[in-house]
Design a protein around this nucleic acid. Sequence first.
DNA 1: GCAAAAGTGTTGGAGATACACCCATGA
DNA 2: TCATGGGTGTATCTCCAACACTTTTGC
Lengths: 222, 222
Amino acid sequence: MTQTYYSEYNQFFVSVDCIIFGFENGKLHILLGKRKLTPGRGLWSLYGGFVNPAESLNAAAARVLYDLTGLNGIYMRQVGAYGEPKRDPGSRVISVAYCALINVADYDENLRRQYDLRWVEIDQLPTLYSDHETMVKDSHEMLQKHIFTEPLCFSLLPEMFTLTQLQKVVESILGKELDKRNFRKRIKQCPAIVGTGIIDKSSSRRGALLYSYDSSCTDFHL
Amino acid sequence: MTQTYYSEYNQFFVSVDCIIFGFENGKLHILLGKRKLTPGRGLWSLYGGFVNPAESLNAAAARVLYDLTGLNGIYMRQVGAYGEPKRDPGSRVISVAYCALINVADYDENLRRQYDLRWVEIDQLPTLYSDHETMVKDSHEMLQKHIFTEPLCFSLLPEMFTLTQLQKVVESILGKELDKRNFRKRIKQCPAIVGTGIIDKSSSRRGALLYSYDSSCTDFHL
DNA sequence: GCAAAAGTGTTGGAGATACACCCATGA
DNA sequence: TCATGGGTGTATCTCCAACACTTTTGC
């Protein structure tokens, strides 16, 4: 694209950074790696990438996520733009943060090892590169804020899940425990969460009913 | 700033666009102008500006608002980044939208005329340049979402205001009427809204008590 | 005295919270 | 038989919504 107009103005590198949430061992995790670019090489960091000329911000975020995980069609949400002049020590870079929620089981372990990435518990984060800690905090808050009104938690779970699993996911996002009976009462009032009739015997002797999320159902609420 | 690293990547124009809300004649308005730059010259548009090299996004937004209104220290909030490749017909421009709330009375009419800007009712918007309608819609929704939990409405009012004025502001933001008694009951439960003891006689024969917002009070809620 | 805005309480319903025990099964 | 996680109901409380009349005073 030629710069026909505006040529007297400055241009900037623009990147997208992905906050990728996953649920494992009853805890909320995010995917972190050691930064490979100079400057900041070796620091813990979110995974990101620069925006291409003909690509929307959303598309750039989806591409970066795909490159990293091989996953397509994942729900992503813009968290915000971060533009302090010195936020990147290398050059002026404006970054747009996106969060994504993935089911850890869908993510190829080999790919994870290949990129040398780690799942890190959300409340045990190391010091991160640049302003990435702010991005993580902001996206975590956004997640907490929308968890009851938008069908986000299912992205962190397999197709079918037990109510206990669902409750653990919600608890891990909120960072607090919930009452089991009240939680299940609410679930029953949500028509988008339906029992499958299948019993999962892997997590208990008695077995637990598996539920699934019906995305065609419009009125979701927990 | 030199482009020491990252030099193989592309750069982009980055602008900020301001959605400036004001309250007038019992209605919520936003400030619009006719676009002066080509392309799109003459179309109704938000006011914006390009980001400078050494300036944060927040600072750029504050500068643009100051240039336009002469107002400083106004609370602004990032709405989001907009980056469709064709969103600006002139060149690839990534824009970060900011909303601001100002008290119309603080804004110099001469300056408004000088820039040829208009206060337009939020529900009577004309067709806007590029994706500015999306920006306005997004920021209006953000405003509605946060109006009860953050002390935003006071930015639209003078230092001292009657409860009727406050209610009208909230109603104009929500786009619906509220019950007067329930509204006032809520106000009384908010320690940050305090009576001044001064009676305003301009709006009624009987006179109405003027209130003010105590920003040092931490727990705000309507 | 009347028009115009200010101010003021009560009630009912819905939804949230707190809380404890039995069930089914594999080992 | 016992350890483990699955599953269920009730009483209370809080919050929100609906609703109508009296007060003050300038004209």
